[in-house]
Design a protein around this nucleic acid. Structure first.
Lengths: 331, 331
DNA sequence: CGAACTTCTGTGAACGTGCACAGTAGCGCT
DNA sequence: AGCGCTACTGTGCACGTTCACAGAAGTTCG
């Protein structure tokens, strides 16, 4: 049983291809009579437009690629991805655009992604966790409209993005810890080639000034294990710290493990501040005082930017959303 | 600057379309000379095949839809999804098949998904967390090769699947708890319209027999909050329980919260067993004794089934993988 | 009454590919 | 020489749609 084509619909409705096509594409200039007949014919035949044929002539595919630059083993470790994926699928589905997932963690994958986009197989690109200096970015930006969830370092003016105000968040947590009377405040940052890594530290330094010395800073890679490692390192290096600001909740969970292993009580001996207000924040013991970043809104804004670019907007402005301190028990 | 077509490549290589096409599709019968010339022409022109044109004639799209039936707000709460998504993208990418994500949590979405697949926009379907009695299943199965990660209840013979041996896992945990001398063992199950919900309880009942009374069973919906609620309910109903088997780590994390709130020590007063051995299991306090299910392997096997069906295999057998007890500190 | 305009409709061409088919050249064998 | 076989190549058609264009029918207006 063959799939019905636009011809079949036209025949059933007693009109021509062209008229059906016009109706399908929301053209005006379709008489009410024709419209009714066609609509009936469509439901009767169960017609669905053939996207391949359509995109052959329109040069558009009706799909968008989500490019995940994280190395594979680390991919999705952070629950924050889920929100973005969910929102992206939903919002795009509303416009009948499908979301194609692509890995770009290694050389082969990157090559594939670039070929895919260059080949015109996606109308737009949604970048996720793209690292500074990644050559992929320019290649993709040259081939299709790109936006990013979170800034792409060094390409802030090339790739529009929506992001939380990481620097503000860093300040908020630092100010809170200071206001609680902590004197030796350490920080575990994210990777220093990501905006979250850099800017949360900047905010921290904004408040702490010279007190944010190198000895009080350790670096993680967003993973829980790296948080644990960095915490252990800090305790060894400067045992007298009384608070630590960890740049993500997941890493903070790791830090808690290290603190526990070292026999430090949280928050009595060492206060711990996280970042994200992700689901982890409430499942740790004690629950994390953290910086809430408006994940869903960020995702929505990112998609708005993407849709705007798909609709032909040449230049769209980045969107930066405020963060908020959430006080629980860890600090 | 127009995108190069197969014509351009053929012209540049001094052969005809047909020969280029044959090379592209791995046909034999391409002379070494032609092959070399074409390959050079391809890299020179930067040619990428136009999938739309190809699928117009082949009636294949080179893409597979991942259908997520979970209601949206609950989607991805369980970190287990990530593994499946990651493996699926990777394995499919190797075959140059792209993964399209589709939501099917509400009526409108389901409609869209069915139209999409009926319209021939995906060569196959990868079902995820499909609930018993979902009419979507039959509609999709009629339209394209379907497989599922985890059995689809009531359609085990229609939709091939790969899954962990949930019943075995249930038995393993129950046996362990019994062997540790616990007498009043409760269980928090998953939703009873999911295989994990049903079969983990079956395994539990296999071991406990008549001791698995209704009063010792509570139901959750896989969410952390539901685990907490169910635990509170159990404590109220039968305060003298000394162990509880929770059908997922995430729910177990919730249960721990409820136990802590009730002043019960884990594992001294009440032992807690989880299921999944997901990332949550190590971040709770105490770390969870749990049943490891081989998530990555399950995902791989699911993709194997899908690929087999895409290659034309009519009937493929389900794959059930063994689980394993992982002893940590909660029991 | 006819021109100009609006609203609607049908038609041919094009998009880029794969496939069936026809055909060629070379070679070995009878 | 003639035949059959293998290895390879080129060509026409079809896939299902959109788009530009031409044109019909009706309406308005000078």
């Amino acid at each position: 049983m063959k799939r019905p084509t636009i011809h079949d619909v036209a025949a059933a409705a007693g009109v021509s291809r062209g008229t059906v096509s016009r109706l399908l594409n929301g053209d005006r200039y379709v008489s009410p009579a024709a419209r009714a007949a066609i609509e009936r014919a469509i439901t009767e035949t169960g017609y669905v437009v053939n996207r391949a044929a359509r995109s052959l002539v329109t040069q558009r595919t009706g799909s968008v690629a989500m490019v995940l630059s994280e190395p594979e083993e680390r991919l999705f470790e952070d629950p924050n991805y889920s929100t973005l994926i969910r929102v992206a699928i939903r919002r795009l589905a509303e416009r009948d655009i499908s979301l194609v997932m692509m890995l770009a963690g290694n050389a082969g994958d990157r090559e594939r992604v670039v070929r895919y986009v260059r080949g015109g197989h996606a109308d737009g690109v949604l970048l996720v966790t793209t690292h500074a200096g990644d050559p992929l970015v320019d290649a993709l930006a040259a081939a299709a409209p790109c936006v990013s969830c979170g800034a792409v370092i060094g390409r802030e003016n090339v790739i529009p993005y929506a992001a939380a105000d990481d620097r503000l968040g860093g300040r908020q947590m630092a100010e809170y810890l200071v206001s609680r009377g902590h004197r030796r405040i350490a920080m575990i940052t994210g990777p220093m080639d990501t905006p979250g890594g850099i800017q949360r530290l900047e905010g921290f330094a904004d408040v702490l000034g010279r007190k944010a010395s190198k000895r009080l800073i350790a670096h993680g890679d967003w993973t829980q294990a790296s948080g644990e490692r960095a915490m252990a390192e800090l305790l060894e290096r400067t045992p007298d710290i009384d608070a630590v600001f960890v740049a993500s909740d997941l890493m903070a969970a790791g830090a808690l493990t290290a603190l526990r292993a070292a026999g430090r009580r949280v928050p009595d001996d060492v206060a711990v501040g996280g970042f994200d207000d992700s689901s982890v924040a409430t499942s740790t013991l004690p629950p994390l005082t953290t910086i809430r970043q408006p994940l869903a809104e960020t995702a929505h804004e990112t998609i708005n930017l993407l849709l705007a670019r798909l609709d032909g907007a040449e230049k769209v402005e980045p969107v930066v959303l405020p963060t908020e301190l959430v006080i629980r028990e860890s600090a």
